[in-house]
């Protein structure tokens, strides 16, 4: 049933690219959201950006997506080529167009670019996310989980080496979220992925790296590297979970560092 990786991605693993954000400042209505912010997204890995609401993590993602202007600093890809046109964006809302069927929504990017629509690829992507029987349904007839699956397929359809996800599964129930996290981890493997989230468990489940963003103006206050393969059993990470909550300003700091985790607190 699951199509081969060649259908899901035409991007070779070597094409995955690291991204550097250096000394960035973003100003919103006269107030800086963050200043002197430097972040590196490693090539072909999933970085989870964790932070409380309103800290500016979504702005960082929108900055990378080219949706907000950079006030100061620079963003560059490791291969020197511009970022524009190599990014696929997935919002916490599914952003499906209500007048289009699921498969027409997946084809949106091609349609907006005036490209021919690859129906075979759409069908296999819908199969990969498990909504083949609902291909002809409009978003209103789909469940919240199905809608996010279609949004995942639409993101994959773009076939970009860099994927930006803004709290992608915050609007679905807990069980559906677990399934979608696993699905996304599987389908986006090999790409450079940034997941913005306020949920430590989601970060532990999906990230190769976890960055914690706190403060006003915001900075990266801690970073963790997780070695375990995905999808991860989060119960093994109770200590990390506690530490992340502490970083976010909720809960006590653990006495000992968690095993199998290489944590580093940034100064």
């Amino acid at each position: 049933m699951a199509p081969g990786p060649s259908v899901i991605s035409s991007i070779a693993k070597s094409a995955a690219v690291a991204i550097d954000v250096v000394d960035a400042r973003v100003v919103y209505e006269g107030t800086p959201l963050f200043e002197r912010l430097s972040v590196r997204l490693d090539a072909g890995t999933t970085t989870c950006l964790l932070g409380p609401s309103g800290v500016g993590k979504s702005s960082l993602l929108r900055l990378l997506a080219g949706l907000v202007p950079l006030d100061h600093g620079r963003i560059s890809a490791a291969d020197g080529a511009p970022l524009a046109g190599r990014v696929a964006f997935m919002d916490q809302r599914d952003l499906l167009l209500p007048w289009l069927t699921a498969q027409a929504n997946v084809a949106l990017g091609a349609r907006l670019r005036g490209e021919p629509i690859d129906r075979v690829r759409i069908a296999s992507l819908l199969a990969a996310v498990g909504v083949t029987p609902r291909a002809e349904a409009r978003p209103a007839a789909l469940s919240g989980g199905e809608r996010q699956r279609v949004a995942l397929a639409r993101t994959l359809m773009e076939d970009k080496p860099i994927i930006l996800m803004d709290e992608p599964f915050s609007a679905v129930d807990a069980l559906t979220r677990l399934k979608l996290q696993d699905l996304a981890a599987e389908l986006f493997a090999g790409r450079t992925v940034l997941v913005v989230t306020h949920d430590p468990l989601e970060a532990i489940r999906m990230g190769h790296r976890i960055l914690v963003m706190t403060g006003v103006p915001a900075r990266i206050s801690a970073s963790f590297r997780l070695a375990d393969p995905m999808p991860r059993d989060v119960t093994a990470f109770a200590d990390l979970h506690r530490e992340l909550l502490a970083e976010l300003g909720a809960g006590a700091r653990p006495s000992a560092p968690a095993p199998a985790v290489h944590g580093a607190r940034a100064s």
Partner: peptide, 26 residues
């Protein structure tokens, strides 16, 4: 809906005629 336009923007960066297609399709 601004989210639709954001999405369309990331899908069409640097493409000619994108503004017209976004108007027509969204």
């Amino acid at each position: 809906e601004p989210g639709w336009l954001d999405l369309a923007h990331t899908m069409t960066v640097g493409r000619r005629g994108a503004a017209f297609r976004i108007l027509w399709h969204i």
